[in-house]
Nucleic acid binder design. Sequence first.
DNA 1: CGAGTTTGACCGGCGC
DNA 2: GCGCCGGTCAAACTCG
Length: 512
Amino acid sequence: MFRFPVSLGGPSDNLNQTQPSDEQQHRAVMDEVDFFRSEKRDDQNMITEETHRLHVKRENSRVDDDDRSTGINTGLNLLTANTGSDESMVDDGLSVDMEEKRTKCENAQLRDELKKSNEENQRLKEMLSQTTNNFNSLQMQLVAVMRQQEDHHHLATTESKDKANNRHEAPELVPRQFIDLGLPSAEVLSDERTTVRSGSPPSVIDNSSPRQRGKRILEREESPETESNGWGNPNKVSKHNASSSNCNGNGNAIDQSAAEATMRKARVSVRARSEAPMLNDGCQWRKYGQKMAKGNPCPRAYYRCTMAVGCPVRKQVQRCAEDRSILITTYEGNHNHPLPPAAMYMASTTTAAASMLLSGSTMSSQDGLMNPPNIFARTMLPCSSSMATISASAPFPTITLDLTESAANVNSPTNNNPLMQFAQRPGFAELNQPGLYYNQQQSKFSGLQIPSQSLNAGESVGAATAAIAANPNFAAALAAAITSIINGSNNHQNGNSNSSNNNVTTSSVDRQ
DNA sequence: CGAGTTTGACCGGCGC
DNA sequence: GCGCCGGTCAAACTCG
């Protein structure tokens, strides 16, 4: 009987969703017109102002309704006036009927207010969702730019170093090559070519046989789907990018694919206690393989996202060998399609974590905590402190969000990050205190503190974006990050130039 | 019958 | 060069 407006298509959609009586309709039209006239005046205002204006509007509506009810009473006093209108016919009724009418009017008014509140909520959710999307895309671009500048810097430093040391520095080329493997981009290729030109031994430049490499490249390029298979060794990605760049020489495409490959390489591992075989993260997955991993009696399952054709996102699901109640889900890649709200939250979280990881991986160990990109990233990651582990030993840059520790603080006022609350949703089962560790350099960073509120699946996106937007550090961190890139990139690079070898701390060189 | 799962085979990287 | 291991493929199978 009572219908809540659920359309996302804007308030105008809701005009046809209810069929009120003539009186209600009249009142609804009055309110709608009044509301949107008010809205149009301040169309570009901030959300909070809109909300406030909505509140003010309600007060005005009540005043209007009171005036109207006064008018009805006035009509009562004009019983002698037989106008023949509908309203006068109503006014001819008994006082009891008038009370009923008034009650109906009030109900209708409340419904209108509720409806408009819901409309406003939907609009706000939509705006927040859009803001989230914009934020994520901006974040991706930011990471890509940062990596591009980092690679430019590597190119400059390695070229100068090669010229200075000529051919006596062959051993240093090995770590640099690993740097390149970890950071596939157009500049990486330039670096490789530069290295060859500088007279380095070919065996150092290309450890694997070119014939084999070319064969692998061809095999990977034959299938459009395998092109996006960044799950494997990072060498594949790098070499694949190398081949594609040599073939087409399209700089923009290279940058995009490089950034994409870079993002795809990063893994975000989520540890959570769950009896379910797989976490309910809102996405649709198709299992494409299962293997027995060494050192773990539990099989590892491989899934790929099936919400869109060609979506590169994959995940591994495996139970912890030590504690089989812990489910380890490892995500890789970014969705290339719209996500439902329930899935968007997890995707946003993993994307933010991956961005944090990637931006942090380009930094030296010394400034890892203080550099703006890391501040930016840690601010984006909606986790409290001591909740994520950046793995230095893993073959891929991996950040682990550990949701498995003691649940003592889950409901405490200080532990309100949306990821934890997401983890309390069905599928995440029992949940314990988060532990976010920045193990790589033994340094910790703090995350967001989110206003306490309970979440359900439908509110996850709104809560996450609200959490990000509401954080007072967010704007400052974002400004710092952007300012760092625009104005302070030299400083950042200079800081890294003193420890260029440290730039690989997070990624592949740690395998050595 | 189509979509999803299972499972053995295959491939490539890596260490010895 | 060989074997191990992780990741993927694809045919067979299951299920709704």
